[in-house]
Design a protein around this nucleic acid. Structure first.
Lengths: 158, 158
DNA sequence: GCTCATTTGTCCGTATGTATC
DNA sequence: TGATACATACGGACAAATGAG
């Protein structure tokens, strides 16, 4: 992958491999670029080298960095895309199951506690996932009763 | 800015430019002096040169260095200006708003979540900022109720 | 309010190779 | 020969901000 003895510095080689992922569209604006630790693990370089590679991308205006969060694709001001949050992925999985007819219409979905166990996450995460399902129209909640799958006639399309 | 071919070593020249910023008062005691990386970027020198420049300032007693935090203006023991932390600057902004009468006395301040959104920081940072407000006497917290602005009669002075 | 893991920021020490004076 | 300086690269450590739980 990398040529440590060539005329091109390692950090430039790493930067350009990441740049390819960006221009190829595999890394969309707002998404997280590889972290320093990921670069270290993936290319077997030192952290300084990883940092310099990111600095190159930053100078080229391809990414911007937020301390404590990571480096994001796109220039400063690009809206961050939390596409990879746990709640969203759980919501997607549940939506898929609803579409597959796994849940009857008159029976509540599994409780927060059950879902929290199944996905091995906190109840708060399940609550967020259910909120997404409601927003997208896959489910509705009746206070003191539970959350139910939406009628197939009203399923969102796409 | 720098004269690489003159009789004065680069690292001394860099040190003396920073020293000017200090004696001119642009860099106050307790403030962060330029980091190694900033020196590299600003004067286009190598890291070794930046380190040596800082070492010169340290030998002259103008700065002191704390590992992991940076180099601060003033000799060892100088109180670090907490303005450099995010929580402190948020606390200062909120204190200013309290002084301006923006919050009623009987109504809680905005929740941690709201403030975290407004300042685009983590809830932990807001928590630290509120703790500072409490310490300074600008606000007090009632468990399970919220945080309230202090009565104007008890505002800290200064 | 607390702990924990992740991530970036900063500093420290070292090393190799090149170049100038 | 030695001091100065640059560019590159490694490894380690601590600190601060964030986010999940």
């Amino acid at each position: 992958m990398l040529n440590p003895r060539g005329p091109v510095p390692l950090y430039v080689q790493v930067a350009e491999q990441i740049q390819q992922d960006i221009t190829a569209g595999q890394l969309q604006p707002g998404q997280l670029a590889p972290s320093e630790a990921q670069i270290v693990a993936r290319w077997g370089v030192a952290r300084i080298t990883a940092r310099k590679a990111i600095a190159v991308l930053r100078e080229r205006g391809l990414v911007h960095t937020v301390r404590g969060r990571g480096t994001f694709v796109g220039p400063e001001g690009t809206p961050h895309n939390p596409k990879s949050t746990k709640a969203a992925s759980i919501a997607a999985e549940l939506a898929e199951e609803i579409r597959a007819g796994r849940y009857e219409r008159d029976v509540p979905l599994p409780s927060e506690t059950m879902l929290a166990q199944r996905f091995d996450v906190a109840k708060g995460t399940i609550r967020a996932a259910v909120a997404i399902l409601r927003e997208q129209g896959w489910a509705y909640t009746v206070p003191m009763r539970g959350t139910y799958a939406t009628d197939p006639a009203r399923w969102p399309k796409g």
